[in-house]
Amino acid sequence: MKNERKRTFLLITIPILALFICFNTIPLIRGVIYSFTNFKGFGKYNWVGFRNYIDLFSDARVGRSYWFTFKLAVVTTVVVNVISLLLALALNSKIRAKSFFRGAYFLPNILGSLVVGYIFNYFFTYILPAVADMIGIDSLRTSILSNPDAAWIGIMIVCAWQAIAMNTIIYISGLQTVPEDVYEAGGLDGATGWKQFKYLTFPLIIPFFSINMVLCVKNFLMVFDQIMALTKGGPAQSTESISYLIYNNGMSGGQFGFQSANAVVFFIVIVVVSVAQMKFSGKKEEQL
């Protein structure tokens, strides 16, 4: 009887684990192996040891893509969380048509980010300059997407537009866990408005804050669709995210081996950032 149970579990686990190893572990290992070669994606290749890794750290284009990606991830995370939190507070207050508003504010999240990117591309290229022309703001008369110093802001806005929907919903579910009598008790002690938020509401929804932080940073570090739809890495390679660079130069630019090394470093970066975030938020929750 006991053996039957054991056998069944093994028969379930082994094939599914095999599938996972075949399409996750093996390609991961192959990626690491390629990173030590000068493979172009086709033809013969040689071992080059740590050459790719050494080149990686002196490659200006790779450096720029890391700077761009982290800048985008940090700024977008802050913007998204501030706006989401405000929206969640508004959506959780006693208002009319609450469920309509909640439904409407979540809408951007279900739309495909590529198509959303194309729509915003048009907005930045034609609408915004036309509006700027009308009210006379010189700096916005040309598309921000063609300005190497400002294109990242356009990408930030599109990423935020979709991510805010998601984070707001998570904050709302956090706010709903705060019992009404906490506010009543706080109100007696004179905690209202900002004070109420800072000392009562926010500490109670810190777990949800952590979830949003982890979600945001991870998603934005891997940003790809928005780049594809808005700038294709331009102008002057100023908006190449790490994923985009690996895709672009690795798949069709003949840098299969070199970009594999980039991908390995990127993988390590993602793991370090995620683990650090979890450690940090774990500590914060413990203190409460």
């Binding site: 093996i26 390609p27 990626g31 390629y34 994923s243 690996i246």
Partner: peptide, 16 residues
């Protein structure tokens, strides 16, 4: 496996 970005699997998977 959640931490493995698609970027690192992409090129080997295209080949595989």
């Amino acid at each position: 496996g959640m931490f493995v970005p698609f970027a690192i699997l992409m090129m080997p998977l295209a080949k595989q």
